[in-house]
Design a protein around this nucleic acid. Structure first.
Lengths: 152, 152
DNA sequence: TTTAAAGTGGATATGATTATCCAATTTTGC
DNA sequence: GCAAAATTGGATAATCATATCCACTTTAAA
């Protein structure tokens, strides 16, 4: 029901939010989120154009979340890569319906509205803070080879 | 968020439910629901295999709803043509998560669950009975050229 | 029995999504 | 300035969803 692209974008953003406000390279994100790197880079370009992340070239560059996780919702991420298409007018173009959806499309749109609302009401911070055993996405792993030397 | 195929299948079923228990030809359905006929016929074949409709060849044949509209839900139709894919286990295959979804996937799955529930709770009869000005799908039209002579 | 109506199945085309590759550009540190 | 690290942009491939076409079969009625 959600496209691969949406899934990938959300994985990347959750990972970035977890590291926020530090920057990560596309390579790091790709590895930990199991998203094919070349494709991920396209998705990130999109998120960059939508001002969700900032990208920085060159040595020491990478991708950074532009806003604090508490102020970024899942919906904004989803809408950046693949906007949720609500049904605004009769898909059959029936003049007699117009904006007054028939019962079928009314319910389909209601379903989409509930998804939209759920996504609007969830911030990245909430996802990170969830009191669950498993941290989002990331498997329990040995720490990175060189965890020290935090890039200031 | 829902594919064309789902949209088409639902349109066809609503139309059929409205005529139920009479049979309609693919041609009639295609015309009134504005679905390309060759594609619609594939969709209907699918619904036929899933025992949602019955198809009958030959003169006077056509497509019939197999069950009364009150006993058919939107969900069954959707699942017949394109099953709603719930997230059962961690999409990243993380062993430490397993069936215990991380907060991100938990919420994505919750969203899908709400759609599924809404669709499960709506029967075709409810859609037809909705007290709305406009009947489902069908524009207000002059009656067919020859409305009499109901095919018994 | 012939004919016209109707769905079936298979082949094929078209378009969008997903995915990959690479040369070019930017940036930092030496 | 040079080299290495990083993203960018464009070209291209692979796969799936959408759509079309047609010869064939089934069926009922004349």
């Amino acid at each position: 029901m959600f496209s691969q692209t949406v899934e990938y974008a959300l994985r990347a953003i959750v990972f970035l939010a977890d590291k926020s406000p530090e920057a990560c390279t596309t390579e790091q994100i790709a590895e930990r989120t199991q998203v094919p790197k070349p494709y991920l880079s396209k998705v990130l370009q999109n998120l960059s154009r939508c001002e969700i992340v900032r990208t920085q070239r060159g040595v020491g560059g990478g991708v950074t979340l532009l806003r604090p996780p508490a102020e970024l919702t899942i919906l904004e991420v989803v809408n950046a890569v693949e906007p949720i298409q609500r049904i605004a007018t009769c898909p059959l173009g029936l003049k007699s319906h117009g904006k007054n959806l028939c019962p079928l499309h009314r319910r389909m749109d209601d379903a989409m509205a509930s998804v939209e609302a759920a996504f609007r009401n969830t911030t990245l911070a909430e996802i990170l803070a969830e009191p669950t055993g498993s941290p989002p996405l990331c498997d329990d792993r040995k720490p990175e080879r060189k965890p020290a030397l935090a890039r200031s």
